[in-house]
Design a binder for these strands. Structure first.
Lengths: 138, 138
DNA sequence: GTTTATGCAAATTCTTTGCAATACT
DNA sequence: AGTATTGCAAAGAATTTGCATAAAC
């Protein structure tokens, strides 16, 4: 993702596009997988982890990233690809390979909905499949 | 859950029923919600946390408990209610209330399946809905 | 008597906060 | 000037390991 696009994304979400934040958005966009905070820290290693933490919190609040847990109980962050109404509309299925430990986005697969009991109000859904990926299947 | 039932559950999963483990199974069974390791530690506070940790790891390996993440990115443990073929068959929907922070098991709602791309092998699914529960809805 | 489980202490890792310095408007 | 952002350091919390003792078989 180029500079201009990163800045645009930040502005769209009401976040001031500082140099660090732009760097972080680019790193998140480049990674094919959702990143842990630690992985992101390593990718942008000029930026202090406290700042990475605070920026990610900000991104979350403004729905620029969403959060998911991988099968190894780690928290991972991923850029939201759509965000029309304050909700995360791009809730898609994630796959965690128990052999290689990688987390994949299955962007093409939409999360199936369930009928919630009376009174429950849905905001977003995390759908994570654990298993073995094609590469590890052999 | 009574002593005998707890022992039976442990034995069924090939785990030696020590006093501590029985206590832990009872605590997990009594709790209506999935518990974090810390919560379980507090419930069984005569047992050291290292032992709680090791027992939970053992329970996981033997599919006596399964793991899920709540909406606050905490790891929670819950007794498996069925376990016929080495997989968790009782994969049901969980609901995390963003207002009160509680995690509910919606036992009656089965997790809908998706068609996985070629080569992916499914083992289990985590389905977590985040939103607002009836009590917090007012 | 050998293996397994336990408690205590401590190491590790991950997350979060305080605060002074810097950059932005 | 005034507000927002940043880096550094350090605090806090959660998880994990080493090792010596105790319990189970």
């Amino acid at each position: 993702m180029d500079e201009a696009k990163s800045i645009e994304m930040l502005l769209e979400h009401g976040i001031r596009p500082t140099a660090n934040r732009i760097t972080m958005v680019k790193a998140l966009a480049l990674a094919e997988h959702p990143l842990t905070m630690t992985e992101l820290e390593d990718l942008v290693d000029t930026i202090d982890k406290s700042n990475v933490f605070r920026a990610l919190s900000l991104f979350r609040e403004h729905h620029l990233v969403h959060v998911l847990q991988d099968g190894a109980d780690a928290v991972r962050y991923e850029l939201c690809h759509s965000h029309e109404n304050g909700h995360d509309d791009d809730i898609h299925v994630h796959f965690y390979c128990e052999r290689c430990g990688q987390t994949f986005c299955l962007n093409e697969i939409a999360v199936p909905r369930v009928a919630l009991p009376e009174g429950y109000h849905l905001h977003t859904i995390n759908y994570l499949i654990k298993g073995v990926c094609p590469k590890c299947r052999d």
